[in-house]
Nucleic acid binder design. Structure first.
Lengths: 147, 147
DNA sequence: CGGAATTAGATTGCGTACAATTTATTTGTA
DNA sequence: TACAAATAAATTGTACGCAATCTAATTCCG
């Protein structure tokens, strides 16, 4: 019935954990693209804004720690958000190495419009609520331990 | 005890499914980088090779369907794999639009060396076997239904 | 049969990701 | 207090990932 197992089974796509993780993330981020486009954000810009909406002003470093992104990625993303008028970037007074990232009035206003994004995504991922909770818990566990 | 719920809770990072998915995928792919570097592959090249090792020659289109990648991504990746000497790219005789991707001798030989990759990853993701199976099943379900 | 529609890859342009390096600032310590 | 070590961003270079577009080959139909 079943195929004969051999040492190369570990190289089969169906036996991977990383591949469905990679593909699923990619597909879901792709779905975000359209609703995000309507409010003028990319996915990366969106998660930056979510952190600022929830926690307020913080440094680029702190932002990076929350988002698992380094300055190589964040610096250009933040410059674009600044150019779009959603955030301010200013050197911290206490430590001139740090860059404080804060919301502009338009950045704060955008939060209301952003409510349509999770709404647009609603129902796109065909998992039950319990399955979604289980999936999220396992991902968060893997993320925390893998750090 | 708990925070008062409001309509903006859906915009909190901790309530997202996509964010841990995105971050987890990114972190795990990052861990692959080192062992893959030892056998001369990137992660994207690796999943291409896995498909070819498992299923043999197929067109770029078929490869893309299995990996959720389009020609914009695959064409340059396949050209690099060709330059590295792991695959051949040749137009299909029956349909000159299609490109058959097949393994070279070096590409076949690489399979043995690639066994060290899952081995190097072993234990890096701190989930129990059952948790890993649950996670993979949920990801595959989400992936299939979202397609 | 023959032109329109479809299809497979390739190309272009933009936006990440990230390792590695650089620069400026701050901290730790002899 | 000098000065080495550490730290935060910025920069550089490489590799995706994908939407949009283009080209060539094939198929569909009237």
């Amino acid at each position: 019935m079943s195929e004969s197992p051999d040492k190369f089974d570990v190289l089969k796509l169906g036996n991977q954990l990383c591949f469905p993780l990679y593909a699923c993330a990619k597909e879901i981020v792709r779905i975000y693209r359209e609703p995000l486009g309507k409010i003028g954000l990319t996915y990366t810009q969106y998660i930056v804004m979510m952190v600022l909406w929830e926690f307020g002003t913080m440094t680029e470093k702190e932002l990076g720690a929350k988002l698992y992104l380094d300055s190589g990625t964040l610096t250009p993303v933040l410059k674009k958000l600044e150019k779009s008028g959603f955030v301010k970037r200013q050197r911290a007074e206490k430590d001139e190495r740090s860059l404080n990232i804060s919301l502009t009035d338009n950045g704060i206003k955008l939060k209301e419009k952003a409510l349509q994004v999770p709404q647009a995504l609603d129902g796109c991922i065909h998992l039950s609520y319990d399955e979604m909770l289980t999936l999220r818990a396992l991902l968060n566990k893997a993320l925390k331990e893998t750090k």
